[in-house]
Design a binder for these strands. Structure first.
Length: 422
RNA sequence: AGAGAGGUGGCCGAGUGGUCGAAGGCGCGCGCUUGGAAAGCGUGUAUACGGAUUAAUCUUCGUAUCGAGGGUUCGAAUCCCUUCCUCUCUGCCA
């Protein structure tokens, strides 16, 4: 959620950058918002003054009771009963306008960073890097055929015990999955991230804090009668660990990593692009999260991207790095890089990581601040990235490492799998 | 799940209707002291919003907040209701 103060101070810049997104009438929305806020300030002043008067009278009544001046007391009480009516009315007005402002603020997406390319189409995304040596051989099988052939993932079994989109990893498939998780966790720890094992159910407050609700509520599985959601990503619990905290500047940056399963309804998804491991309702992901000071967040975004790239290089998978255009940018993100691995069996790119800077959009909702040396507090910048999401990495490994009747295991994973081929 | 107890500032803890945003202690910051440190002394130490001030921070005044929400009262940390959470005992269970 944007800060109203920031909107007031940098109105033109915000309108300019927000208009890169497909938000209708952004200029008039912002202008109306500022008018509403002006009104709010006036009402707040009135409210404060009335309460001040009321408190003063109440104090005087107390003093008069002690001194036994009964005649004055009745006058003061009468006076207060009049003020009380005004306070009631003003309180209602204040609540109403605060709600109105809040609703507008939560409906505005994050402001794209200045160097986010503008556009609403896929081709407006900027390919920052693309691996060369990509195998395009017709004999290469898609991963769903290889999976069946080698019996490492069973989709029908998942259908039986749950429903579509919940595969069962079997035998070496399960071991490979576990190897990837451990490898990703260990690498992140080497880079200074602290491992966290969070709950995979979150409450409404946490879902609001990172921006899943109200915007993406329909994408999450909700637990009936509990007001809890299954996490769509570890970003939610990990970032919300710091909700309502003021972090000392010496404890910045905060770097956390977590492995969790992730659950997404993916409502409206259908067709060939959901085949095999391409899109699942439950999948595993290792997520890195940083909470940093505002002036450093973009260099940290680069640092996180470099880390993700390093993983992809170590796995020796063809990949590309994409700077998302304004139209593809997530609601809460100011700037996002996507990483895609190549699937030679499908002859297409698969998104396997998304690294984003949310600037203060999440920290304003979740109330995460940094206390600076001079005792002032600023909203922190939050960032997160998949490092990495498993299924498409797995698909890419299976397809890229296929040969004859085998699938080789990437070198870096062998210590984790204990076998070098499937 | 049943019975009981309880939720107060970074932490501990006092406060059962009146000037209480809250005693006292610990911790931490700053200053004095010291060759340096400890001790000692002094002083400061919540958050949000609004006003004044500022480039901004700081500062200052006002308002709100003692788990959350509502109620009683001129006045609520204190009384009442609802709700969430924690602890102890009993039950169940990986």
């Amino acid at each position: 959620m944007l800060e109203i103060k920031n909107i007031r101070n940098n109105k033109d810049e915000i309108i300019l950058n927000l208009s890169k997104r497909k938000v209708n009438n952004i200029k008039s929305i912002i202008n109306d918002l500022i008018k509403l806020d002006d009104k709010r300030k006036k009402i707040k002043s009135l409210y404060d003054n009335l309460n001040s008067q009321y408190n003063q009278s109440s104090k005087e009544i107390g003093i008069n009771i002690k001194e036994g001046k009964n005649s004055k007391i009745e006058d003061l009480k009468k006076q207060n009963s009049v003020i009380k009516e005004d306070i009631k009315k003003t309180t209602e007005d204040l609540k109403l306008i605060e709600k109105e402002i809040f609703d507008i603020l939560t409906s505005i997406p994050n402001v794209p960073y200045k160097n986010v390319p503008q556009g609403n189409k896929q081709e407006n995304n900027e390919i920052v890097f693309e691996s060369e040596a990509i195998k395009i051989e017709n004999k290469l099988l898609p991963h769903w055929d290889l999976i069946k052939k080698h019996k490492i993932i069973d989709f029908e079994l998942g259908n039986k015990i749950t429903s579509a989109g919940f595969p069962v990893y079997v035998n070496k498939g399960a071991k490979l999955q576990r190897a990837l998780i451990n490898y990703f966790l260990d690498e992140a720890i080497k880079k200074g991230y602290t491992e966290i094992q969070p709950p995979i159910l979150i409450n409404e407050n946490s879902a609001f804090g990172t921006g899943q609700i109200p915007d993406k509520e329909g994408q999450m599985y909700k637990i009936e009668n509990e007001n809890l959601f299954l996490i769509p990503t570890a970003e939610v619990p990990i970032t919300n660990v710091y909700q309502n905290t003021i972090i000392d500047t010496n404890d910045i940056p905060i770097k956390n990593v977590a492995y969790t399963p992730c659950f997404r309804k993916e409502a409206g998804s259908w067709g060939s692009h959901v085949r095999g491991l391409n899109r699942l309702h439950q999948f595993d992901k290792v997520e890195i999260v940083q909470i940093v000071s505002p002036e450093k967040s973009y260099s940290i975004l680069d640092e996180m991207c470099n880390y993700v790239e390093e993983l992809l290089k170590n796995l020796n998978l063809p990949y590309r790095k994409i700077r998302l255009c304004s139209g593809d940018l997530g609601f809460t993100s100011a700037m996002t890089y996507d990483f895609e691995v190549f699937s030679p069996g499908q002859k297409k790119w698969l998104e396997c990581s998304s690294v984003s800077n949310f600037e203060t959009y999440q920290s304003n909702r979740a109330n995460i601040k940094i206390k600076l040396e001079n005792r002032s507090k600023v909203l922190a910048h939050t960032l997160n990235g998949s490092a990495l999401a498993l299924p498409r990495i797995l698909a890419s490994i299976i397809e890229n490492y296929q040969s004859n009747n085998k699938i080789k295991i990437p070198k870096v994973l062998i210590p984790y799998t204990g076998f070098d081929e499937i």
